[in-house]
Amino acid sequence: MRNMKPAHKLLFVLCPMLVLGFIYYSSGKLHLHVWGQKPLFDKQGFLLNLDTRLPPELVYKYGNLSEGACKPGYAAAKMSAIYPKFSKPASMFLDRNFKRLAKVTNFLPPFGFKTQERIIDVILSGTKNYGLGPDLDSLSCKRCIIVGNGGILSNKSLGSRIDEYDVVIRLNEAPVSGYTRDVGTKTTLRITYPEGAIQKTERYEKDSLFVFSAFKPLDFKWLRQMVFKEKLQGTEGFWKSVAHSVPRQPSEIRILNPYFIQEAAFQFIGLPQNNGLMGKGVSNMLTMKVFLTLHACHPVVGDSQNQNMNLSLPIIGAL
């Protein structure tokens, strides 16, 4: 080192640093191949390499169930295995204790109920019911299916299969009458918002719950008028015409927990929080319903082997 020229000394010091810097940079770009370690999860927290085999704990719990049996807790457990950010099950609807829901307290609609606490209290005092109903609430295992609006079920003749599920969820104005051979006759929940609600009262199915999903503060004012059968007033602020009445008793109306929109947007899709304001990408309700079913529903052994059902239905209980 003593006889080395200054330029040579500088190179002697810089070369190892450059090599180490290159290795460090490459390790991130090449998923740590240099160090022999591969990342398990992507930036959103999803498992990079999905393993179709059941984790040992699920094999032990569900391995001996006969085909066609309902598997309570399976969907959430499987989701947690591929997406550790998936949290514990949340309540499907708001009840009188909704102010205790810390995750949604500080967000404006659609991600929470900030500024709307008083009107929600009034609405819930009128509906008085906050579950699926005694029969469904008593089930330890609920098989659910979401029937989308894209027309993919046309000419599939899956209506009878759809009706076999405990909970059939339909979105907005998805039609039933005239299409029962393909989409079924059963509707347990119809999840919608003011602009998406059916406007012709005769098109509502009997014995279904009207589930309200708010996207803006004005939506709660509309819901209050629907619950208490008030004359619709103040339609400015809606982007299209809205229903003037909902042919449901207050006891048949629910408010969807905004937690599902929040989790779907910020965690599942990975949208920026944007100071809690609604941005692009959350107007499509289907992703949010995926989160809902993962929390509240359970798959059926054997459904994943029915290729016709998997290809034809946007979301089924056997996720």
Rank of each mutant, 00 (worst) to 15 (best):
M1F: 10
A7E: 08
H8W: 09
K9I: 06
F12H: 10
S27A: 12
H31P: 00
Q37S: 02
Q37G: 00
K38M: 05
F46L: 11
N49A: 03
L50C: 00
R53F: 02
K61F: 00
L65R: 10
Y83R: 07
P84L: 11
K85N: 09
S91V: 12
D95F: 05
K103L: 07
N106Q: 12
L108H: 06
P109R: 01
T115N: 10
I119R: 15
I123W: 04
L124F: 05
Y130S: 06
G133W: 10
D137H: 07
K142H: 08
C144Y: 04
G148Q: 01
N149Q: 09
G150N: 04
G150L: 03
L153F: 08
R161T: 08
D163W: 04
S177G: 07
R181C: 00
G184E: 03
L189Q: 07
I191Q: 05
Q199N: 14
R203P: 00
E205Q: 15
E205P: 11
S208M: 15
S213V: 13
A214G: 15
K216R: 15
P217D: 12
D219C: 03
F220S: 02
F220H: 02
K229I: 01
E230Q: 15
T235R: 14
T235D: 07
F238D: 09
W239M: 09
V246P: 04
V246G: 03
F260N: 08
A265F: 07
F268A: 03
I269R: 08
G270C: 02
G270T: 01
P272E: 05
N275P: 00
G279V: 11
N284D: 15
M285I: 13
L286Q: 14
S304D: 13
Q307F: 01
A318R: 07
